[in-house]
Structures are given as C-alpha cells and as structure tokens.
Computed example of a mutant assay.
Amino acid sequence: MDLQELAGLVTGRRAAAGRSVVVGISGYGGSGKSTLARALVEALPDAVRMRGDDFLDPVRVHARSDDWAGVERDRLATEVLHPFREQRPGEFRRYDWDLGRFREPEPVPRADVLVLDLIGLFHPETLPLLDLTVWCDLDLATAVQRGMERDRRAGNDHDRVWNEVWAPNERAFAAAFAPRDAADVRFPTG
C-alpha cells in the first residue's frame, strides 16, 4: 500500500460513515508515525492532524510500564475523540514540552478527517474511538535506532531512556495488546 491508496481508503471510510472519522496511526517510537500523519493530512481534503505527543504525561512516559501508562488515553478520549466523532464543540489542552506545562485550552478542530499519531494508541480504551487504524510496519530495533538518531539530531541524548524504558515498554505493550494485529492497515515505513 502507498500513500495514495491509504488516502483513498480513508476517503472511502469517511463516505461510508457519513460523518467525520478518526484515523489512528500507531507504531513503535521512531517508526514514522508523525511523518506518515503529516503526509496523509496533506493528501486529504479537509483533514487535520492531532499530535499524540500532546497527550503524553511528561513523567509517566519516562517510566517503565506494560501498557504505556504515560499515554493519557482518558484525556485524549474525553477532550478530543468523543467531541470530534460526535461533532460537538469541545476544548483540549496540549502539553507544551518546551515550557513544561499545559497550554491554554483550544477548540477541538472540525474537519472531515482527524489523523492522530501516537504510541500505545491501539489499546482497548481508544480502539473503539478510531474509525481506521494504521500500523507503521517497522521492526522495533530499526524504529529504536531511528528514534535515537532523530533525538540526537535534535540535540537530545535519550539513548538510555530508549534502551531501558521505551523499547521495553514497546515490547510489553505488543505482547499484551498485539497492536500490529489490531490494525486495519499495515503501512510499510522501512
């Protein structure tokens, strides 16, 4: 599958639903989720991207857990996914990583398609709120290497956290929830 085929699938899903739809993009950290989400939004008319990093707890995301406990799924569902899918007004708060605090509330965007990219997204709490699920199909070792390289280019040395926390979190989440198998689409990002 390529980007145009994926965009066509999203358009078809939107038409069949008869309402705005949420496309969830997940995969291992470093697998290309954000890159794919940006490209998909550019390929679709009336689509917006919701950055998953805005829904990470800044402390818990750096701690070992078997279910990516640092992903604030309840806040994401309550503040964004429910209002968007129900086409009703809502507000959400982004976490500002540079300032170390939440930003002021902003309105939930309105569009035909909301594209959300996030680690640990294909979880029982959020899967029912996603109309199409896309897994960035890249093996964990390659994704971790890419993630570490990306962070180094940005001036962040997170190698220890990648090796001791994030990669083990990914393995445990995959064992518990089989997110690759839960995906409607496995999109090659290698």
Rank of each mutant, 00 (worst) to 15 (best):
R88C: 11
V134T: 08
R85Q: 08
P107G: 11
S65T: 14
Q87C: 03
D53Y: 07
F92D: 00
F122R: 08
F84V: 00
E91Y: 02
W135A: 01
P109W: 12
I119V: 15
E79V: 01
V134Y: 07
L118Y: 14
Q87Y: 00
L121A: 15
D112Q: 07
A63N: 00
L127H: 09
Q87M: 03
V113S: 08
H123Q: 13
L121N: 15
D96C: 05
F84L: 11
F102R: 06
T126L: 15
R73D: 09
A47E: 06
C136T: 14
A63D: 03
I119S: 15
E125C: 03
R75P: 00
L132C: 08
L114G: 10
L99M: 03
R73N: 08
Y95K: 07
R85I: 05
Y95E: 11
P58V: 13
L116Y: 15
R64G: 03
D53P: 12
P109A: 06
A47S: 09
T133A: 15
R60V: 02
A47K: 04
P89R: 01
I119H: 15
F92N: 00
V59H: 02
R103C: 08
V134G: 02
V108T: 11
R94K: 09
E72F: 01
A77S: 07
D112C: 01
H82R: 15
G100W: 06
F55L: 11
L114H: 08
L114F: 06
L76M: 13
V59W: 02
E79K: 02
E86N: 09
V113M: 08
P124R: 09
R75Y: 01
T126N: 14
R49S: 07
M50I: 15
C136V: 10
S65V: 07
W97Y: 14
A47L: 06
F84T: 00
E72K: 04
R75A: 13
F102L: 13
E91G: 00
G70F: 08
P105V: 09
W97I: 12
E91S: 04
R88N: 05
F55S: 10
D53V: 14
D117E: 15
D137G: 03
E125W: 00
E125M: 10
A63P: 00
R51A: 11
D117Q: 12
L118N: 14
D53Q: 09
D74G: 06
A111K: 06
V61T: 09
L81W: 00
R94C: 03
E91K: 02
D98K: 13
L76H: 07
D137F: 01
D131E: 13
W135V: 03
F55P: 10
D53A: 11
P109T: 06
R103M: 04
R88A: 07
R94E: 05
A111Y: 10
P124K: 09
T78V: 04
R94G: 00
R103N: 05
S65Q: 07
P107K: 05
V59A: 04
P128G: 05
E86T: 12
V108D: 01
F84K: 01
G100Q: 05
F92G: 00
L99N: 00
